[in-house]
Design a protein around this nucleic acid. Structure first.
Length: 214
DNA sequence: GTACCGATGTTCT
DNA sequence: GAACATCGGTACC
């Protein structure tokens, strides 16, 4: 079975009840990147919860990772949240028109500054709204890329540095979900730090991002 | 299917 | 200036 989804819910009433505690993210970044697969990212947009299952992530390891925005350990206005406590969102603007959303992970002594990039979702909640915001009717094109899923969920710079266990942007874990089979490969779209397999995704899931090489 | 290419604004050198 | 954790389009095989 390729898909992560294991129930027939299309709306969700009290997601706060199922949020992952911020302690969940207090682990090394690779472990967090793997553990987030099969969890659900949602945002409340126009009164409705939109989102779906996380099916692809990438680990950015912090100060020692040349591809990480925290490389070198220098704190800037953009990367500041990565040096704070785990469980907060890190949203940045890229290529002049897109946003990408990360989750800040393990952060020993505020030095390592790791984060997990959410690269793709399996769309489940508020499909109608996501189609409208993405300007397409194709289900498989709604959230199969980091820029696309932010557009579908209306994630912008206003969602930066938010705690993911409260508010309008949440990561939840519904009871009774099966554990996905995880595969790994090299990260996408970066020039430095391509050696290690730090991209993780659900095996055979049809909503993985498109890319040239893996 | 693969291969470029332009859009567009912020960040960094 | 150049690079950028992207995407949608066009051209061609």
């Amino acid at each position: 079975m390729a898909r992560t989804r294991n129930n027939k819910m299309t709306t969700i009433k009290n997601p706060e009840k199922y949020v992952l505690p911020l302690n969940f993210y207090r682990r090394d970044t690779i472990s967090a990147a793997r553990a987030l697969l099969g969890k659900i990212l949602i945002k409340k947009v126009n009164g409705k919860w939109a989102g779906g299952y996380i099916v692809e992530t990438e680990a950015y390891l912090g100060s020692d990772d040349p591809a990480c925005h925290a490389a070198g350990g220098k704190i800037t206005d953009r990367n500041r949240v990565m040096f704070g406590p785990p469980g907060l969102s890190y949203v940045y603007f890229i290529y002049g028109m897109y946003y990408c959303v990360n989750v800040v992970a393990f952060n020993e002594e505020n030095e390592r500054a790791g984060a997990v990039l959410i690269r793709a979702l399996e769309p489940v909640f508020d499909i109608v709204g996501m189609k409208k915001r993405r300007k397409t009717e194709a289900l498989e094109e709604l959230t199969n890329g980091p820029g696309k899923l932010c557009q579908a969920l209306n994630i912008t710079r206003e969602d930066n540095a938010r705690k993911l266990d409260e508010g309008n942007l949440l990561i939840i874990d519904l009871p009774g979900e099966r554990r996905p089979v995880i595969e790994s490969a090299c990260r996408i779209g970066i020039r430095r730090g391509c050696e290690l397999p730090l991209r993780f995704f659900c095996k055979d899931n049809p909503f993985i991002s498109k890319h040239k090489k893996g």
